[in-house]
Amino acid sequence: MKRFLLLSFLFLLPACGSKTEPLPPPLPEGILTLSGTILPAELSLVRRGTHVLVQDGIRLTFLESPVVTLRNYEQDTVTLRGTLEHNVDPSLLPVFVVDSIVNVESTTRDWGIRQIDLTLTTPRTWQQRNTDGDVHFFVEGVAQPILTLDEQPSTGEMPLGESIVVDGHPAVRIVNERNGNQAVYILRGTNMVTMLFTPREYPEPQLLRDEWLSVLSSVQFDTVIPPEVEHSGTGSVTDTPCGGPAGILCPAGSYCEVQNEEMDAGVCRAL
């Protein structure tokens, strides 16, 4: 019986060994100094890191800190002190645990959008231009805008999507996983502010997406428009935005009536 168990163990051992994941390469130990630009990272339940450190368009590490408020340094070029640790999944970028910031160089620009009474902060490489009442932001090498802002009277119905908050205002974010486009609808009193992020053919879409998240978190409305009507979220679907770069779908029992063929955008109509 013992001989049978021993043979069984020896038979299973190679199979178990073949499934062993290779050990990740060792990380530098001790206190390190890294330089780069801090950008926010997408929230995740399966990895560590609230931010990323970018240098020359390349993501170096994820960042986290128990002592430094990294959000205060978003889009700044900094020199950090801390230690490197493996991420939850060793195949992902490691995590740099920041204990101090020793140098800060601003690489951003603040914009005041008077048409919508808001301010936001973008990288200095972003340029702003107004066309037909809309506010557009461009980056070098891309002919079409990567970010468009607009404000229209609200219909009282929020599109279906991820609920977020922008500067204290209820908002919805819709992400098109196929092309990376994002649409954010911000309910501001009786008006709806729309932010359309369209990375298009930008050669480094992940970097541009990180910059967009930082821009979104920087939005501040200069004045508060008092709501004249309470919006319960149960109004008619009529005139709810649909289509567009984010590919917004209409709720069941309605269809999208295209009103802007260039953007393939329209409003929902009841069947």
Rank of each mutant, 00 (worst) to 15 (best):
M1E: 09
R3V: 12
R3W: 08
R3H: 12
L7T: 05
L10M: 10
L12T: 03
L12F: 12
L13A: 13
S18K: 06
K19A: 15
L23K: 09
L23Q: 07
P25L: 11
P28W: 05
G30C: 08
V54S: 05
Q55W: 08
D56P: 00
I58P: 00
R59L: 15
R59F: 15
P66W: 10
G82E: 08
T83C: 04
L84T: 09
E85T: 15
V88N: 05
D89E: 11
L92I: 02
V95A: 03
N103R: 11
T107D: 11
R109P: 00
R114T: 00
I116A: 08
D117R: 00
T121H: 00
W126N: 02
Q127G: 10
T131H: 08
T131Q: 13
T131P: 00
G133Q: 08
H136D: 08
E140V: 15
P145E: 13
T148H: 11
T148K: 14
E151T: 13
Q152N: 13
G161M: 07
E162P: 06
R178Q: 14
N179S: 09
N179E: 14
Q182D: 01
Y202G: 03
Y202I: 02
R209C: 00
W212A: 01
Q220C: 00
I225L: 05
P226N: 13
P227R: 10
P227K: 12
E228T: 09
V229Q: 03
S236N: 11
T240S: 10
P241G: 03
P245D: 06
L249I: 07
S254I: 09
Y255N: 12
Q259L: 11
Q259H: 11
Q259K: 07
E261G: 01
C268L: 12
